[in-house]
């Protein structure tokens, strides 16, 4: 089994899996019906991307493993999503700030992944980048709208970014696995995305009249390496509930 590729696919898949789960939690709680529709759309895209990457990971693992086994039956430490995806739906400002920060990251990441020498990754990414381009355009619009809307919306969105900012340094952390796959033209070294990400967020913040918080290294333990926030355990307890309660059942 190609361990590095397996781990890399889990990282890509888990980001979508957990972020789409947060969006699923928000179902029927949007500020207006149009937003309920739009945000669910984003959640569905992310879930679809997660399914594709987890299926590929399951194929790599072999031995009859399925994407559902990987999605629902791993231990907490075996999930490799970044902390930002785990943050709860505190309010609409946090939801959109979290989404925007991930969308910018995904946009540059998946652009590069479309050129992956691994045809499966390139294929999934070619479909995903179209979806992500829409996600980013939508979330960027909302950031500007909230930043320039009312005093209250400005304060709320700025507060959300101030609070979430500490989770962004993880996005650009890299390790031997990424470096190995980047050298082979299969994956992307996350640190190479930082400049583009910074420029794009700066551009949108300037349109929105928001201050860019400063990036500080907040932690040495990262989700993408299996060390999570306290939030994830509860999320998994709910998500894994049925498959763990009825291990022999098929759905």
């Amino acid at each position: 089994m190609n361990n590095n590729l397996f781990t890399y696919c889990l990282r890509l898949g888990d980001n979508g899996l957990i972020l789409s789960h947060r969006i699923a939690e928000y179902c029927s709680a949007g500020p207006q019906l149009e937003e309920d529709l739009a945000i669910t759309n984003v959640g569905l895209d992310l879930l679809g991307q997660a399914e594709s990457f987890l299926k590929y990971a399951a194929d790599i693992k072999g031995g009859g493993t399925t994407e559902d086994d990987l999605a629902f039956k791993r231990k907490e430490k075996e999930y490799l999503c970044v902390h930002l995806t785990e943050i709860p739906n505190i309010d609409y400002a946090y939801i959109m700030a979290r989404q925007f920060l991930m969308d910018v990251y995904n946009y540059y990441l998946f652009q590069k992944l479309t050129a992956s020498k691994d045809t499966v990754i390139a294929g999934i990414s070619a479909k995903a980048i179209k979806e992500i381009t829409y996600h980013l355009s939508r979330s960027a619009d909302w950031i500007v709208r909230l930043g320039q809307g009312t005093d209250e919306s400005h304060l709320r969105i700025q507060t959300a970014f101030n609070d979430l900012w500490m989770f962004t340094d993880e996005l650009f952390e890299t390790d031997e696995i990424e470096k190995d796959l980047a050298n082979k033209g299969i994956g992307v070294d996350s640190s190479s995305l930082k400049e583009d990400w910074k420029n794009k967020t700066k551009e949108i913040f300037s349109q929105a009249g928001l201050q860019t918080p400063t990036i500080e290294k907040h932690s040495l333990a990262y989700g993408k390496f299996g060390s999570h926030t306290e939030y994830l355990g509860f999320l998994l307890a709910e998500m894994q509930h049925i498959p763990l309660l009825y291990p022999d059942a098929k759905w």
Binding site: E25, C27, N41, D68, E238
Partner: peptide
């Protein structure tokens, strides 16, 4: 949030949408 498979979760999400 408790749908037991990725497929069923996707379909349910699409349905609610």
């Amino acid at each position: 949030t408790r749908a037991p498979s990725l497929r069923s979760k996707k379909i349910l999400m699409a349905k609610i949408q």
